[in-house]
Nucleic acid binder design. Sequence first.
DNA 1: CTGAATATACCACGAACGTGCGATTGATTA
DNA 2: TAATCAATCGCACGTTCGTGGTATATTCAG
Lengths: 216, 216
Amino acid sequence: MPINIWMVEDNSRYRKSLVAVINNTPGMYCDQAFSACEEAFDAMEVEAHPDVILLDIGLPGMSGIKGIQKFKSYAPDVHIVILTIYEDNDTVFDALCEGASGYLLKDSTQDKIVDSIREVLAGGAPLNMRIAQKVLQLFSKIKIKRDTNYGLTEREKEILQYIVAGLTKQQIADKIFLSFHTVNTHIKNIYKKLQVTTKAAVVSKAFNENLFKAGN
Amino acid sequence: MPINIWMVEDNSRYRKSLVAVINNTPGMYCDQAFSACEEAFDAMEVEAHPDVILLDIGLPGMSGIKGIQKFKSYAPDVHIVILTIYEDNDTVFDALCEGASGYLLKDSTQDKIVDSIREVLAGGAPLNMRIAQKVLQLFSKIKIKRDTNYGLTEREKEILQYIVAGLTKQQIADKIFLSFHTVNTHIKNIYKKLQVTTKAAVVSKAFNENLFKAGN
DNA sequence: CTGAATATACCACGAACGTGCGATTGATTA
DNA sequence: TAATCAATCGCACGTTCGTGGTATATTCAG
């Protein structure tokens, strides 16, 4: 059966042009196109749900970002592909967190957009080249932090885990069969190495710098 | 100038086959191919550095994952494209964190691999369809957590920030011009809402559940 | 108008924490 | 062999925290 596509895009020229392209492509059709999320929500109440929604972000009324979840509440399995001019980190990040299945930029060719519709239904995640690069950069940022060990010993790392877990010094001592004083000493040493002075700060630093994972 | 490509792949048939394809492609060449990272490191010491390294993960000796950073230490600007059969979450995640510029699976067509080499040099991030999907799923997981606000008020969120930053109650009071007692009360309420009993636990929960960002 | 929620403020007490000392043992390394 | 480091244990003091109360002003929805 042909792919049912909806489109939400306030630029009528761009919208009409792309709708025409889709309707001239075998295997897919777009009979619903809107200039605002609100109109599309009304249609979701009465029409058969689409397979894919091509969604702009810079819209009058509700933004595409907020619209993602709303569309998903109507049709949990719908694939939402963002099609926008925005490529700043925050917008991309927010859209992906909201559950977009793909992210294209409007400078994409019409062929690329049509291909992406097929790709998302095949279980893929069409991403513009520059968007994919941004996404990967987010990962490598995580790594940088994970390298700084602060020279914690094994025992100290172990105790660090329990601090993060929220145990008191006495509870930690009981857990690993040490005296309260020993735990106290270890924690003092952890403070020196991490250059902090409270448990809350240790937890904060531990998360910010990914002081977990045994390896390295 | 043509693209200089190296390859690290222990399956000699696959390696030779792909090297041949690359060398038959105008604009790129592969004159160095290895069956282990260690061999490639030796070559990095004496040969001109490549533009792109196609790197397997399941290798004898050092794994491709650990190899990524090592290659980057020789040539910080080299683009490393993973080419492997592994597509489990941990492997993908680790590779991207280490700084891979792309991630392909070995069932990719040779055309796709050649295209990806060009794409990565054009500033893109070639990802296999299924890998891209995994990556996007990681983002939507973040979102789920961010929804659970625990009904914190604006004031409480504000104070939460300072707790995470490691300030004492008195310091927080001074910072936002409130009495110590008021801050104390707010923190008590935060504890009730988050169901914790210590500052360390608050910090832990705040990080684990992304209790940041004002939006929603 | 009337609760409910929010923000503000105060007090007191015991528990937990942070810190400055000192000390012994065993393993590793220079 | 001497020195360093990790791990263990100990005490004392002042500070901060967590928790049980109580109370007032404001705002906002029912």
